[in-house]
Nucleic acid binder design. Structure first.
Lengths: 333, 333
DNA sequence: GTGAAAGCGCTAACAA
DNA sequence: TTGTTAGCGCTTTCAC
């Protein structure tokens, strides 16, 4: 910058102004400085800028398992919005280990990132296991799932609605005996779709029997196992609501392998609408989550929080929608 | 830090040393300083550290489309290795637009990241369209695909082998009439699996006719379309090699929908081994890419380059392996 | 509209 | 082994 200043015959202050607040510089001077910047290929040292201004223009996004394809669209939404505002994404994978969470939280408290986008189920244990919980509220933090008794700005999916949509669809088709394969119930997102589903059934006077409520770690292989379990039952359900598509296709695969017809013998409704859902045979009926929009909205709130703008609403809820395809149909007569 | 120093009755230099090079501090002093650091909850300001040391300990990873689930495991491999070395991941999505590439490249030249991991097909156009190509070589840059006539440290998948594995498997099954659905042939990774496949066939005295070589943008929907095209042909192939699993499941879906049996009427071999491949019905035979290992290896080389260590080999090639499942079988008699 | 100068928090060279 | 001190490159008051 000093070199540019010298060549342009101005002070470094003027160069700095030309670059960051061009309006404060006389047009003529501005032009001269800018042309020399271009000529010399000068780029400001972002480390110095960040240090001086105390802002890194980067957002840390924490997920529990980056391997989960579910996050791909979510990241895209964040990335697009962030880039449009001049922010970069730092991505961290906690693997649900407190130690990893801690590493990433420390980056915040040590100014490596300006804010944290928390898309992990549950509370950030790694952080305030050792510290005071209230510290959390001082950090620019936006949650992407509800977090019990912690009043954080939140952008979440309306999972109650998601569960309800699945239930109503299956009820409409005439089903009366259901199974629900859900994730760990202490996760807010899981709990809500669970409740939404059950509530809708209850309103129709139906309850899912305990042996047909199957809480597992979600995933393809776990889905296979859950399907086997279901097949072992005497009185099978005619429809299953599965808490994500990965698990649903594992189940679907097992059902078909064991000679069942879907939806003839059993209807399957997934959750997420992953790209492969529509390429299954039969095509998977599922609850579609607008993941990209979710990411963008979360990022928008994140930046608002970082920049201290006042937020209209501290809690945004994004509605999923039902995608009816071929894996659900009326029960056998 | 000054506060810690004061309380501990030492100079800031000693605090700094206690934190970064504990061996240079007397055990007794070290203990005292550290206990006060803990007590006060002091965290060093990483912006200042980065600024002063001129290193950000962050790695920029550029992909063409973060939405592609293919990258998930790749990121995981990078993240794990990076974190173990105290680096963070910056993730950028170029959407194959020169402007976006440029944004991210600028972050490097302006010290926002220490190095760039380039997992985009083709050369970084956005960067040296305007500048001199040789600049590229000054940046700590590791490519994850071969890049024509640019001698960059590279960690790539052995796609020649991948293509060959698919070909040999299908030849072994007795196939003689093939189709190949490939990505854009100007992409090195695509070209190589294309060549590997064709070379193996040629060695068996077989050639893929032009009308059965179908270069498209890869993806589920494009796979559906390619399948329709194939079905319209008079003299159908008995086997298809498809350049990724997403495209393969799109084709599979269409084949089944149109009443073909797979592999009875046509065998399908994919590429990647995405998690869903094993949950298709029939389960998808595919060429498995060890994506996590790939990411870790790439990250390892990246850090070696950043830290100026000498590298044993500037070009690492990772072998894929064939996963034989149910979508491939002998051709009809 | 521009320049001089202080100083952000830290590290490292050098001195003691 | 520890302390003193210069200075990393920039932004921003304040004075002109």
């Amino acid at each position: 910058m000093r070199d540019v200043a010298r060549v342009a015959g101005v002070s470094v202050a003027t160069v700095s102004r030309a670059l960051s607040r061009p309006d404060d510089v006389k047009a003529e001077t501005l032009e001269r400085v800018l042309s020399i910047v271009k000529e010399t290929g000068y780029r400001s040292n972002q480390m110095a800028v960040q240090f001086r201004t105390g802002t890194s223009r980067s957002i840390m996004v924490l997920v529990s398992d980056i391997t989960n394809a579910f996050y791909a669209e979510f990241f895209k939404g964040i990335e697009q919005y962030a880039r449009s505002k001049g922010y970069v994404l730092l991505i961290g994978d906690t693997s649900e280990e407190a130690a990893s969470e801690r590493v990433y939280f420390d980056m915040l408290t040590s100014n490596k990132a300006d804010g944290l986008l928390w898309n992990v189920d549950g509370i950030p244990t790694g952080y305030f296991q050792a510290d005071d919980r209230s510290d959390l509220l001082d950090i620019p933090l936006v949650a992407c799932n509800g977090i019990d008794d912690l009043d954080l700005p939140t952008v979440r999916i309306d999972n109650d609605l998601g569960g309800r949509l699945a239930a109503e669809h299956l009820l409409d088709l005439g089903h009366r005996r259901f199974a629900q394969v859900c994730g760990p119930l202490h996760h807010d997102s899981v709990k809500r779709r669970f409740d939404g589903f059950n509530l809708a059934l209850r309103q129709a006077g139906i309850q899912v029997p305990d042996e047909l409520t199957i809480p597992i770690k979600l995933g393809i292989d776990q889905g296979r196992r859950a399907a086997e379990d279901l097949l072992g039952l005497a009185n099978r359900p005619t429809a299953v609501f599965v808490h994500n598509d990965a698990t649903a296709i594992g189940m679907l695969h097992t059902f078909l392998k064991r000679g069942l017809s879907v939806p003839g013998d059993i209807s399957v409704v997934g959750y997420d609408d992953m790209p492969y859902a529509s390429a299954m045979t039969p095509e998977l009926t599922t609850v579609r989550l607008p993941r990209r929009r979710w990411g963008a909205a979360a990022c928008e709130m994140m930046i608002a929080v970082i920049e201290g703008k006042d937020i209209e609403s501290r809690e945004i809820s994004i509605a999923p929608e039902l995608k009816v395809r071929d894996s659900s149909g009326p029960p056998k007569a």
